[in-house]
Nucleic acid binder design. Structure first.
Length: 350
DNA sequence: AATGCGGGGAC
DNA sequence: GTCCCAGCATT
C-alpha cells in the first residue's frame, strides 16, 4: 500500500505557519524578504547545508560565521589551502565533509565559473552533495519543486502517515508523498517542514495542538505521535582501548603528526598513539624516556567507544621523522579533532 | 542494502 | 547515561 496514494501534506497551512514562526538563522532569507524578491546566496546555503549534515543547528552557527568571515565567496574558499579549511573544521566532525567542501568549491570555480549549478541534478554531481543537499539547495535557492527529505522529515512524515516500519524501508514512498505536496514556494516549504520538525514535531516532544499538520496527521489522531518513527534494532557499541603519547621537548613544545589520508579522522592532526584494540595492552612508547601516566580519557565515535590512557614525557627530539613540534599556545590553531584535544587537556595542555 | 564516518546539544 | 541531529561515500 504505497504511501503516495495517501493524502498529501497541507502545504498552505505549513507555509502560513512558517510566515509567522520561521526561525532566524544566519544563512536564511526570511519568508518576508523572500516574498520581496530577495534570493539566498547559493554559496552560503551550500556551506550551511554541508555543515548541517548530521549536525545540529546549535553546533553549526559559530562555524558558519567563522567560515563566511574568512571566506565570503566560493572563490575565496577555493583559493584557500586545504589545511586551513581542515583547521577551521576541527571539532565539527565528519572530516570528509571538509575535504569534499574544498573540492566542491574548486569544482564550482574551475568547471562552472564560480556559479553553482541551478538544478538538483547538476548540484548532486559535485563532491559532498547527495540526494538531500542537492534538493535542499535547489529548492531554497531556485525554488525547484523537489522533495527535500532529511531526518526531520523522516520523523514528521512517519508520524503523519503512521508508518509502522523503519523509515528506510519506505523511503521512496515517503519521497513520493512529499513530492506530491510541494507547492510553488518550494524553498520556503522545505525550510518550513524542517523548522516544524525541529520545533513542533520534535523527537521526544510532539506539540500536536499547535501543529499546522495536525488535521491530517494519523499519529496525532491516534494520540501516539511518539511511537513514530519506528526504530530499527541498534547494534552494541564495542570498546577499543589504547595509549596516547604526549611528548614535549626541552622547550616545552608538543610533538604532533598528521593522521593517514584514509579512514577515521583522515588527514587530521594527532599525537602518537598505540593501536586501538579490544583487549587492554601494555604501552609501546615511541621513545625511551621517563613516561608519566597523566590519566585516561573516553571518546565515543559513531561505531565504537575509545578509552585512551594518556602518557607524557620530556624527550630528546630525535628519531621522530614525520611530525612537528608545536608551542602549546598555538594548539588552538592546529587541525586537532576533539579526541586529541581531550588527550592534550588530560596532559595539562590547552 | 550495510557500513564507516564525529561531536555535541537536549533530555 | 540515551537519542539523534538539514547525510554522504563506499562497498
Amino acid at each position: 500500500m504505497p504511501l503516495s496514494h495517501h493524502h498529501p501534506v497541507d502545504s498552505s497551512a505549513v507555509l502560513d505557519w512558517y510566515d509567522l514562526h520561521a526561525r532566524d538563522l544566519p544563512w536564511r532569507v526570511s519568508p518576508g524578504d523572500r516574498r520581496a524578491g530577495i534570493s539566498p546566496d547559493p554559496y552560503r546555503v551550500w556551506l550551511s547545508e554541508v555543515m548541517l549534515q548530521q549536525t545540529t543547528v546549535a553546533a553549526v552557527k559559530a562555524y558558519f560565521l567563522r567560515f563566511t568571515g574568512l571566506w565570503p565567496t566560493v572563490f575565496d574558499l577555493a583559493a584557500a589551502p586545504l589545511d586551513a579549511v581542515l583547521r577551521e573544521w576541527a571539532g565539527l566532525g565528519y572530516y570528509a565533509r571538509a575535504r569534499n567542501l574544498h573540492a566542491c568549491a574548486q569544482a564550482v570555480v574551475k568547471e562552472h565559473g564560480g556559479v553553482f549549478p541551478q538544478s538538483s541534478a547538476g548540484l548532486q554531481a559535485l563532491p559532498g552533495i547527495g540526494a538531500y543537499t542537492s534538493a535542499a539547495i535547489a529548492a531554497i535557492c531556485f525554488d525547484e519543486p523537489i522533495a527535500v527529505l532529511d531526518g526531520n522529515l523522516d520523523r514528521v512524515l512517519a508520524r503523519f502517515y503512521a508508518v509502522p516500519v523503519p523509515v528506510r524501508e519506505v523511503k521512496d514512498d515517503l519521497r513520493a508523498a512529499l513530492q506530491a505536496s510541494v507547492p510553488k514556494r518550494a524553498g520556503d516549504f522545505a525550510q518550513a517542514m524542517m523548522d516544524l520538525g525541529a520545533t513542533i514535531c520534535a523527537p521526544r516532544n510532539a506539540s500536536c495542538l499547535i501543529c499546522p499538520l495536525q488535521p491530517g496527521c494519523i499519529a496525532a489522531r491516534e494520540g501516539t505521535p511518539l511511537l513514530y518513527p519506528v526504530k530499527p534494532a541498534k547494534a552494541e557499541k564495542p570498546v577499543r582501548r589504547g595509549h596516547a603519547y604526549v611528548m614535549r621537548d626541552a622547550a616545552g613544545d608538543v610533538y604532533l603528526q598528521t593522521r593517514p589520508a584514509k579512514g577515521l579522522l583522515a588527514s587530521m592532526t594527532e599525537v602518537p598513539t598505540s593501536p586501538w584494540v579490544a583487549e587492554p595492552a601494555e604501552p609501546d612508547f615511541p621513545l625511551t624516556a621517563e613516561w608519566r601516566r597523566c590519566g585516561s580519557i573516553v571518546h565515543v565515535f559513531t561505531h565504537f567507544r575509545l578509552e585512551l590512557d594518556v602518557w607524557s614525557a620530556v624527550v630528546a627530539p630525535e628519531g621522530l621523522e614525520h611530525g612537528w613540534w608545536a608551542e602549546p599556545a598555538t594548539l588552538g590553531r592546529e587541525a586537532l579533532p576533539t579526541l586529541f584535544r581531550k588527550v592534550l587537556a588530560e596532559a595539562g595542555l590547552s
